[in-house]
């Protein structure tokens, strides 16, 4: 790390989950009138970056890939206190899987240059792969720390508390590095009172096309994606539950539940020796 800390936060704009369905005629995603939002864990990543900026100084840049309608979303990030924003917008980027997406983002990060810390949300609410942050790190050849709950900075290193299966661990990584941040690990601050004025201002977001990046167009977008979608469907509701309604006073209802639970516990297989107490 040289000079001031330069952080870059990757923000993905996603359609709101509950407003997306499958078009049964074409078997493609119907994003129709779905409203968009910044992917929630990416907001936690941005809050983590701004909190580091509050403590240690430095600056925060934003990077996103998507259509031009993403610009107002990046302005929201600027209103929260970020210093610069870049949007990668080109049809050539479209249809990318995680390999092509992480390559595109890594190419832009190289072009911006001098980034000490790349922060991402743990996963996106639309794809939920969680593979882009490690992918960016692999393309850039720098360390990665995923599922971060807390980040401290210490002499050019980061100390990251991260979630692991059944617990947590603290990792020490040199900078530059990529960190993915757990959803809800912090409370994203609301837009600054002064920052909100910038929501209506043009020219605050730099837009780049594929030609602006040093990347082979055959390695990005749909063309650069080794995986493809073989089928799509809406999740089915389960059928086959009894749906028996229990009625009465609370005490009567509780009594029926008690009888049924006891009966069920007796009839299902006995618990093993180690787990019963």
């Amino acid at each position: 790390m040289t000079g001031e800390l330069h952080m870059l936060v990757c923000l993905k704009v996603v359609p709101k989950s509950e407003e997306v369905g499958v078009d049964r005629a074409t078997n493609t995603l119907d994003r129709g009138n779905a409203r968009s939002e910044i992917n929630p864990p990416d907001m936690n990543a941005l809050e983590a970056a701004l909190a580091l900026k509050d403590r240690y100084g430095g600056r925060v840049s934003l990077l996103s890939m998507g259509p031009p309608f993403v610009v107002p979303m990046l302005r929201v990030g600027l209103a929260m206190g970020a210093d610069a924003a870049y949007l990668l917008s080109d049809r050539a980027f479209g249809g990318a899987d995680t390999l092509a997406t992480s390559l595109t983002l890594a190419s832009a990060i190289r072009k911006i240059g001098d980034i000490d810390l790349v922060l991402c949300g743990e996963e996106s609410s639309d794809g939920a792969t969680a593979q882009v942050p490690p992918g960016i790190a692999a393309w850039l050849g720098i360390p990665q720390v995923t599922y971060a709950m807390d980040i401290e900075l210490e002499r050019g290193h980061i100390l990251v508390t991260r979630e692991i299966r059944g617990g947590e661990e603290v990792l020490d990584a040199p900078l530059p590095a990529v960190v993915s941040v757990k959803v809800s690990c912090n409370q994203p601050r609301f837009m600054d009172v002064e920052g909100m004025a910038g929501l209506d201002r043009d020219g605050t977001v730099t837009t780049w096309t594929a030609a602006d990046l040093d990347v082979d167009v055959n390695h990005i977008g749909l063309a650069g994606s080794p995986t493809s979608v073989a089928g799509l469907r809406e999740a089915l509701q389960t059928v086959g539950r009894r749906r028996e309604v229990v009625t009465g006073t609370p005490e009567q209802e509780a009594h029926i539940l008690y009888e049924r639970i006891s009966e069920f516990v007796r009839s299902s297989s006995p618990r093993t020796q180690e787990t019963s107490t």
């Binding site: 390999l99 792969t129 992918g135 692999a138």
Partner: peptide, 22 residues
């Protein structure tokens, strides 16, 4: 798992292959 995803995402790029996650 956290470790499995952590490894898979990096490995897929190193191997230049596709990864279907979760």
């Amino acid at each position: 798992t956290p470790y499995g995803r952590d490894l898979a995402g990096r490995l897929a790029v190193m191997l230049r292959t596709g990864l279907t996650a979760d």
